[in-house]
Structure formats: C-alpha cells, structure tokens
C-alpha cells in the first residue's frame, strides 16, 4: 500500500469549515490552477454525502427565485446548503455579469449557507468546466444539499444531468406547449418539472400537458417524473417541489439507480479531465514550433489547406507509432 501523503493545509481548512479558505480554493479551481490537485485528492474521500440538485430552464423562468425559496425551506429544516449559480461568459470579452445573487434573501451571518456565482468561461451546456469540482468542495465543506442553477442560455441545459443527481426543469405557464420544441434530451434529464409563476394564467393547463407528455415519454429507469406548480411570489408549491425532489432522491437510493448514475457521471468526468489534459498538452507541444510556422507559411501561400496542415501536425506529433516488427 502507498503511504498517505500529508493532508494539505488548504484541505484541512475546508474540513474545518473555514469560509475564506473555501472561497479562495474555489477561485483556484475555477482558474484551473494545477497546484490544487493534492488538495482535491485529500478532500475527495470526504465527499459524496451532499444531495446535488440541479435547476435548469430558460432565462427568466424563476430559477434563482426558486433557489431562494428552497434555501429558506431548507434552512428552516436545519439543512446546510451550498448554492452555485452559473451564468454565461461573453464570447467577445470573456467577461460576465453574474446576477443570480440578486434574488437571494438571506441573513449574511448565516454560516449554513455558501453561495457562489460562476461564469461559464466558454464551457458549453450551461455549466462551467470547474462546476463539478466546486460542487465537491461544497460537499467536503459539509453542505448537505447543493443547489446548482444553470446558465439557462439555451433553453434547457441538459448537461446538468452529468452533475446533479436530481434535476428540476423549470418552466412557466406559457412555455407549456412549447415544450416539445425544446431541446432533445429534456425528458431524459428532467426528474421533476416545475411550472413556476403559477400565479399567472395557464398554469393548470401547462402542468396537465406536461404530465401527459411525461406519461408518453419512455425513460431508461422506472422513475415517473413529477410535475409540480409553484409561485415564488405567492410562496406556494415550494413544499411540494422539495417533496418531489426528495421522492426522487429516495427512489435513487432504493432502486440502485444512484450508484449507476453516479458511475456514469464519474466516467464522464474522468474522460473530460483526460481530454482537457491531452488537449492542453498536445496543443502546447506544437504551439510556436518551427514546424507549425513552416506549415503556416504554406497555408498562407494557399499551397496547403488548414485541415491538411492540422493533419500533418497530428501525424508527426501525436499519431501513435506503429510498433516495429
């Protein structure tokens, strides 16, 4: 057996629930700082306890408002809650306005909450590349529930299915009949549908319609997605929403689906990190090389097309050599 390396100070600070240390470590993880690898490794055995609940849905349907309502409910029940709100980065400037905090109403002295905004930083699918690791930090920190709000840039960010164990798709009454035109994969990942803003007309119809669609759509497991109506304005339906989430979490544990889903998520994560690592290394290997310069000369002179140049780089630098016989 390998001897265990000493636990890094940053990891000890997280386990001791040092909020400042958590905030700083999240920044490093976001910035893809390779120095955090031993810290993440040391914290990993302390993770896997939090229920990770995703909220996705189009912009403006009330995801952040629902996060706020759930936060109040969970704090009353004594649960420690981490929240991550993801917003898109501008493809032009790389900057971002992260506005999910506006809807959160909380006592700043309440240490049972940790809220963090994240910019997607060019990562597609409504999450950031580091979101999974940040979820894990909140988990190691001792948060019992992590609420994860996606950017909601597209319609429904189906990538959330690769991170959260229960996924809530939030819609509003008038979106009910547009649901079929929403992104494919919606029904695969939706464990709970929430028709928010049910103080507006049309909510009953939308909920009925969704329930019908749910009945018609086959799933790979035996869970039958629930449809709930809520209004953060009236404060109604929040208990029902949480009950539906809990029912799904209970289903996961009793049916063995949790382990299965978890393994799938872990596989996706390992492969993604592997891809990231390979990409960065492979690109760095040829960037600025004389070979690349030479190829660019050819491309510029229109003797070689860009794809042929890339193929040539790949063949010479990365293609696996045939074993000599």
């Amino acid at each position: 057996m390998r001897r265990r390396p000493p636990v890094p100070a940053a990891a000890r600070a997280i386990l001791a629930r040092d909020r400042l240390a958590l905030a700083r470590l999240i920044t490093k993880v976001e910035n893809r700082d390779h120095g955090v690898a031993p810290v993440l490794q040391a914290l990993y055995p302390h993770t896997g306890r939090a229920a990770v609940i995703g909220l996705t849905g189009p912009l403006g349907v009330g995801k952040s408002s629902l996060v706020n309502s759930l936060l109040q409910l969970l704090r009353k029940a004594g649960k420690r809650v981490g929240v991550i709100g993801v917003d898109p980065s501008s493809p032009f400037s790389g900057g971002s306005v992260l506005g999910d905090r506006i809807r959160i109403d909380r006592d700043p002295a309440d240490t049972g909450i940790f809220f963090r905004s994240m910019a997607s930083r060019g990562h597609p699918g409504g999450l950031a590349a580091a979101t999974r690791e940040v979820v894990r930090l909140l988990d190691a920190f001792g948060m019992e529930v992590v609420l994860l709000e996606t950017a909601g840039t597209g319609q429904v960010d189906v990538e959330i299915g690769a991170v959260a164990s229960t996924n809530v798709v939030v819609l509003v009454p008038h979106l009910g009949d547009e649901v079929q035109s929403l992104k494919a994969g919606l029904f695969e990942i939706a464990d709970v549908f929430c028709v928010n803003k049910c103080d507006l007309p049309g909510a009953d119809g939308a909920a009925r319609y969704l329930a019908e669609l749910v009945g018609l759509t086959p799933r790979s497991d035996a869970w039958r997605p629930r449809v709930v109506q809520a209004s953060t304005v009236l404060g109604t339906g929040i208990d029902e929403l949480w009950a539906a989430v809990e029912a799904h979490e209970a289903y996961l544990r009793t049916s063995g689906s949790f382990e299965k889903g978890n393994r799938t998520r872990l596989e996706a994560e390992v492969l993604e990190l592997y891809r990231e690592r390979i990409l960065a290394g492979a690109v760095a290997q040829v960037e600025g090389s004389p070979e690349l310069r030479r190829l660019l000369d050819e491309v510029e002179a229109r003797r070689l097309d860009p794809r042929a140049a890339a193929d040539s780089l790949y063949e010479r630098n990365h293609a696996r050599r045939r074993p000599r016989s």
Binding site: A23, S93, G95, V97, L98, I102, A119
Partner: peptide, 30 residues
C-alpha cells in the same frame, strides 16, 4: 456591463444591500 465588456466577471448583488451583505458576498465570491 462596462466592466463585463472589459473582460471582468461582475457579481451583481443588486439594490438595498446592507454593509454586512456586501462584505459577506465579497468574501464568498472571493
């Protein structure tokens, strides 16, 4: 928006923030 367009990540906390809320947000968001 101007700071975003200059490439910064702007955490927008909104109206009527108390000093305590502002400082807690600043710390959490690092």
């Amino acid at each position: 928006r101007a700071l975003r367009d200059a490439g910064m990540e702007v955490i927008y906390a909104g109206l009527r923030q108390t000093p305590e809320e502002i400082v807690e947000s600043a710390l959490e968001e690092d």
